[in-house]
Design a protein around this nucleic acid. Structure first.
Length: 255
DNA sequence: CGAGTTTGACCTGCGC
DNA sequence: GCGCAGGTCAAACTCG
């Protein structure tokens, strides 16, 4: 098992994982009682979304700033803030792609200073190495193919860890709609848990983000979702939701 | 027929 | 070194 505590003290922002969240469910606010997935996992998943995080999320949401993009972008940020449902996690939206698609930003990629800076979301970080962040884009060619059956993992040192974030949601549905499309690639029975753990990969061809979904052993009404990696593409549903706003901004930006 | 799911096998890391 | 548990692969299967 990986050490989810990690040795790295550096805070890390929620990396664009939750730009859109339409789950008809109740986030768990019990900060005092970090959940244990099972008796074995209890010491591994040590950090979770808490009320504090959600406050931070709201704060991050309302403080979205796009310094050099002008009032149009500010309006967009404000609109996004107003658009997100109450329990939305920080919308670390891929603003670059968004604004490019909306025609509010020129073709050359523009780095938005501070957008990927650490925010007050360290509470949810389970693991990160710091080196492997945007691996999805280049990586192994959209792969995971590096592992072949029958000894294909030659030269595979310790598995490079990527930032991992977990949050729990009280929901009857295991599958939470976070706006991205996922393909299930595995399921495992977990020791000391009646519920299996499911493994999902983002279906976007260049994206290598994974997530694990599992119900708490203690409280099976709670779904724990662990994300690994960073999406390198915009969220489809977010784009759907924001397209009217973007069009309006595009119109306004002409003046 | 393509995309997604299921499921058994295989591989790796870790603790003993 | 061995066994266990977790993670992933990929063939078979299902579904729209």
């Amino acid at each position: 098992m990986e050490n989810l505590e990690g040795g790295d003290n550096e805070a890390h922002a929620l990396p664009g994982l939750f730009p859109y969240f339409s789950v008809p469910s109740t986030p768990v606010l019990d900060a005092a009682a970090p959940p244990s997935l099972s008796s074995d996992d209890s010491n591994q998943h040590s950090t979770f979304v808490t009320a504090a995080l959600q406050q931070a999320a709201a704060s991050a949401c309302s403080n979205l700033q796009l310094p050099h993009l002008g009032p149009a972008a500010d309006q967009l940020a404000a609109a996004a803030t107003a658009t997100v449902p109450p329990m939305i996690l920080p919308p670390m939206v891929d603003w670059t792609s968004l604004l490019q698609q909306a025609g509010l930003m020129g073709p050359p990629p523009v780095m938005i200073p501070g957008l990927h800076q650490p925010q007050a979301a360290a509470a949810v970080q389970l693991d990160q190495s710091g080196e492997n962040d945007g691996e999805a884009a280049s990586g192994s060619g959209g792969g995971g193919k590096e592992k072949a059956k029958g000894g294909g993992r030659s030269g595979n040192k310790k598995k490079a860890s990527r930032p991992r974030f977990a949050f729990q949601t009280r929901s009857a549905n295991d599958i939470l709609d976070d706006g991205y499309r996922w393909r299930k690639y595995g399921q495992k029975a977990v020791k000391n848990s009646a519920h299996p753990r499911s493994y999902y990969r983002c279906t976007h061809h260049t994206c290598n983000v994974k997530k694990q979904v599992q119900r708490l052993a203690k409280d099976t009404s709670i779904v724990v979702t662990t994300y690994e990696g960073v999406h390198n593409h915009p969220c489809e549903k977010l784009m759907e939701a924001l397209s009217p706003i973007l069009k309006q901004l595009q119109f306004l930006s002409q003046f």
